[in-house]
Computed example of a mutant assay.
Amino acid sequence: MMESKKYINVIQHLAFEDLGSFGKVFQSQGFEIHYYHAGVDIPKTIYTDDSILVVLGGPIGVYETDIYPYLQQEIDGLKYRIQNQLSTLGICLGAQLLVVASGAKVYAGHVKEIGWSTLQLSEQGFESPLKHLHDVNVLHWHGDTFDLPKSATLLASSEHYPHQAFAMGKHILAMQFHPEADTNRFEQWLIGHCSELNHAKIDIPKLRADNQRFGATLAQAGEKLLREWLEEFDVLLQ
């Protein structure tokens, strides 16, 4: 009897913010990737499915459920996954959705953190898959921040914000930065977020140059991070 194909479910909030470099890792391990678009086609079954769920980033605020009501559906679904320790990876907005689903607060920060810089790992961070990001410049792209959930273990901070990554058990991992950013497709981010970048007076040529300077190293470190996280579930082929 042939083994059934394994797959992951991915919630996408923007067309150009996909799995990026993480997609290659999943594909190399035989995963079939199923993308679902927020506000359009997210079936409730992906929250109860024991397959890995990845929730990606986006420019909307997790607290704007009155404007974007589907966010509440995501929050409710993530509550179930947290309670049942179903393997879930949250990136940027995805991380903030996990925060709210766990009962903590997300709110506007004091500064837009957009650009490349290193993280400060906690002691637990050095014992986690995030250890591969030590001294690696990662891509930050957010204006909101959050309180650390009571059930969470802090893994990383940044220059501007104390809470950048956390874990809840071994199955739930949340990162407010972007370890999945694909250097070769970075221009899509600059185009798609041009209004935000101009409003925040971000130096776009520098952002582009830093992508060329740091992107390849981040991709290598991000692959190691993701592979180690997957090893927790014994799903790697090699």
Rank of each mutant, 00 (worst) to 15 (best):
L89R: 02
G90D: 02
I91C: 05
C92S: 04
C92A: 04
C92K: 01
A95E: 07
A95C: 14
A95D: 08
Q96D: 06
Q96L: 03
L97T: 12
L98S: 10
L98T: 09
L98K: 08
V99Q: 06
V99S: 04
V99N: 05
V99L: 07
V100G: 02
A101V: 09
A101G: 08
A101P: 11
A101D: 07
A101Y: 00
S102R: 06
S102I: 09
S102W: 02
S102P: 06
A104Y: 06
V106T: 09
V106C: 14
Y107G: 02
A108M: 10
G109N: 10
G109E: 08
H110W: 09
K112Y: 04
K112D: 09
E113Y: 00
I114N: 01
I114W: 00
I114Q: 01
G115N: 06
W116G: 09
T118Q: 08
T118F: 00
Q120E: 15
Q120I: 06
S122Q: 11
S122V: 01
S122Y: 03
S122W: 03
S122G: 06
S122P: 06
S122D: 09
E123H: 04
E123A: 03
E123C: 01
E123V: 02
G125A: 10
G125R: 05
F126C: 15
S128W: 08
S128E: 11
P129H: 12
K131L: 04
K131T: 10
K131R: 13
H132N: 14
H132V: 07
H132D: 11
H132R: 04
H132W: 07
H132T: 08
H134K: 15
H134E: 15
H134T: 10
D135N: 15
D135E: 14
D135V: 01
D135K: 14
N137R: 13
N137S: 14
N137D: 13
N137C: 14
L139A: 12
H140M: 11
H140A: 11
H140L: 11
W141K: 03
H142G: 04
G143H: 03
G143T: 00
D144I: 00
D144E: 14
T145N: 06
T145E: 08
F146I: 06
F146Y: 13
F146M: 15
D147C: 12
D147F: 05
L148K: 08
P149F: 04
P149L: 11
P149T: 05
P149I: 05
K150V: 08
K150C: 07
K150M: 13
K150N: 15
K150Q: 15
S151Q: 15
S151A: 15
A152E: 09
T153I: 13
L154Q: 09
A156V: 00
A156D: 12
S157R: 06
S158D: 11
S158N: 10
E159G: 00
H160D: 09
H160K: 10
Y161H: 12
P162V: 10
P162F: 08
P162R: 11
H163L: 13
H163G: 06
